[in-house]
């Protein structure tokens, strides 16, 4: 069994600052991390590896420094890491990204065996679109399973997989045929810590590095800025909310303060008051 996990290296959003004048992102000193959502995908892949002895390949498109994130994926226990890097990829939107990644996946399939499952995270914390996974699935014709909270069963012989998928008002239990693309829901598992041996071999590992030509991309107009139908025309800072929290007085007994807080709440949001009453009617019957 072969599993590929797409991971993206992103700037740690907690550390992002916006230049007050130019409204550009100040990246100085901002550390990069593996997109946190992708760790749920990677851990799920590693669990399948534990169960089925699968081999896990981590794939990342990004600048050469993104190899750090890939190395980290190896430390957790991935078996192989592929970095897709080329200056032609700069400025890719989701369509161009999914194009480049699907070309890399095709080459990964040719070189290391066709993956039964391609994982992505739910979304990234910089782009936040949740589109790259579905994009890859439709380009490669993989059955698309998004927002998966649990992999119930994987039957390799029958080539089938059963999963639980988070829908709007409940959980769908879906069954489909491999190969699939799974975008893993957040908070569904906890990333493990690799062993000394895994950490050592990760530190030693060669990161396979491919450029556009290596994955068979001939038409560069499908890549990067040129291959991106969306155009970012304006970037600006949100107008700071001037209305900071209305602070309720902290005078008096706990009871007085609690009532003051509720009064303020109901005054501010009468809808909430009605709603709570309506719920309470259910609640106390």
């Amino acid at each position: 069994m072969h599993i590929v996990v797409c991971i993206k290296q992103v700037p740690d959003s907690a550390q992002i600052r916006v230049h007050p004048v130019t409204n550009t992102i100040m990246r100085q000193g901002v550390p990069t991390i593996i997109n946190p959502y992708d760790l749920f995908a990677l851990e799920e892949a590693l669990r399948l590896k534990d169960r089925f002895g699968a081999s896990v390949t981590a794939l990342c498109m990004g600048p050469p420094t993104a190899s750090e994130s890939l190395r980290k994926a190896l430390t957790f226990g991935a078996d192989r890491a592929v970095l897709l890097t080329d200056r032609y990829f700069a400025g890719s939107d989701t369509l161009a990204t999914s194009y480049a990644l699907s070309m890399a996946l095709t080459r990964i399939g040719a070189d290391y065996g066709t993956p039964e499952i391609v994982f992505t995270g739910k979304q990234t914390i910089d782009g936040d679109t949740a589109q790259v996974g579905p994009g890859i699935a439709s380009r490669l014709g993989l059955n698309q399973l998004t927002y998966i909270s649990r992999i119930v069963e994987t039957d390799l012989d029958a080539g089938r997989i059963t999963v639980e998928r988070r829908a709007e008002t409940g959980t769908q239990v879906l069954e489909t045929r491999l190969p699939v693309l799974v975008t893993m829901l957040e908070a569904t598992n906890t990333m493990r810590r690799g062993t000394v041996e895994q950490a050592l071999s990760a530190a030693r590992a060669e990161i396979v590095t491919w450029n556009a030509a290596d994955v068979g991309i001939e038409d560069l107009t499908k890549c990067g800025l040129r291959g991106s139908p969306t155009i970012v025309k304006k970037v600006f800072a949100p107008t700071a909310r001037t209305d900071k929290a209305e602070i309720v007085s902290n005078e008096g007994s706990a009871e007085t303060r609690a009532n003051a807080l509720i009064d303020a709440l109901f005054a501010r949001a009468p809808g909430v008051e009605d709603d709570l009453y309506a719920r309470a009617v259910h609640h106390y019957v």
């Binding site: 810590r193 690799g194 062993t195 000394v196 041996e197 950490a199």
Partner: peptide
């Protein structure tokens, strides 16, 4: 010895 599981180095 480190805080990771496994042998000493």
């Amino acid at each position: 010895r480190t805080d990771r599981q496994g042998n000493p180095i």
